[in-house]
């Protein structure tokens, strides 16, 4: 046993934490199953109503309720409807335009659509130059979509990272002409470096943004690690 193994030998999950977690998982399972049943019933009613309402049903189906932003250098945003199917594909730069034009993602389940994007040759050529693909999820059920993304076959190979953002971040991103993924990264970077502007981010690739963020994180960590007792700058 090496010294690190010796040192960490005492760090283990307590029975109490395990039990607490098990109980939470049971609660979550029950809640989701009953919500699922209610959701199914609601969906059936909604569908019947939609049939009656005709055009209203089409609008319901075509309305995005969740968004997944895929950024490497091409920035693409997928809008998902209540059934987790792609109903909107928006490109935020030339690379994104090129990929959106090559692929037909409409009505695809989101995991399949993400795999299509990740396996596209043009996308892969961009990804190879970048710092890993960044996925940003905006949804009322973000954890579930994140878990689904992490299950996509190309997720690990693409060096994927996933983040959650909220509806406000999404609105601000669109107002500023950026994908929500890039805008979230801008917000994070601006906490370290308030001189960065949205306009700067328009001219930076996602890889460059990620690189600057990593430098800021490492800088903040080494400041903390040297024990000067300073807070990381940029706290709000």
């Amino acid at each position: 046993m090496n010294q690190l193994q010796e040192a960490l030998r005492g760090v283990a999950a307590t029975q109490e934490l395990k039990e607490w977690t098990r109980r939470r998982l049971v609660r979550e399972r029950t809640r989701r199953r009953s919500a699922g049943r209610k959701g199914l019933a609601a969906a059936v009613c909604a569908c019947l109503l939609c049939l009656l309402l005709g055009a209203g049903g089409y609008r319901f189906y075509m309305s995005p309720v969740s968004y997944i932003s895929i950024d490497v250098n091409p920035s693409l945003e997928l809008g998902l409807n209540a059934f987790d199917r792609v109903v909107q594909t928006v490109a935020y730069n030339d690379g994104g335009d090129e990929i959106a034009a090559r692929l037909s993602l409409q009505n695809m389940p989101y995991q399949q659509a993400v795999d299509e994007v990740l396996s596209d040759q043009v996308f892969q050529s961009y990804a190879a130059q970048g710092n890993g693909v960044v996925f940003t999820v905006v949804s009322g059920d973000g954890a579930r979509l994140q878990a689904g993304l992490e299950g996509c076959s190309g997720y690990y190979a693409s060096g994927g990272h996933s983040y959650l953002a909220d509806a406000r971040c999404l609105d601000e991103a669109h107002t500023n002409g950026l994908s929500v993924g890039k805008y979230r990264a801008y917000l994070e970077l601006s906490e370290y470096d308030p001189s960065v502007t949205v306009d700067d981010c328009h001219h930076m690739s996602m890889g460059e943004l990620q690189q600057r963020l990593e430098q800021c994180h490492e800088g903040a960590q080494s400041t903390q690690g040297h024990g000067h007792g300073e807070h990381r700058h940029g706290h709000s």
């Binding site: 283990a12 934490l17 607490w20 977690t21 954890a143």
Partner: peptide, 29 residues
């Protein structure tokens, strides 16, 4: 738990992440 210990600095965040990880497992298809 050990990975949380290596990355996070306080018990509250560590326990939050611990549960989140298993929640993601529960939801992972």
């Amino acid at each position: 738990r050990r990975l949380c210990f290596m990355r996070l600095k306080n018990r509250e965040d560590s326990e939050d992440v611990f549960q989140t990880v298993f929640l993601k497992y529960l939801l992972y298809d």
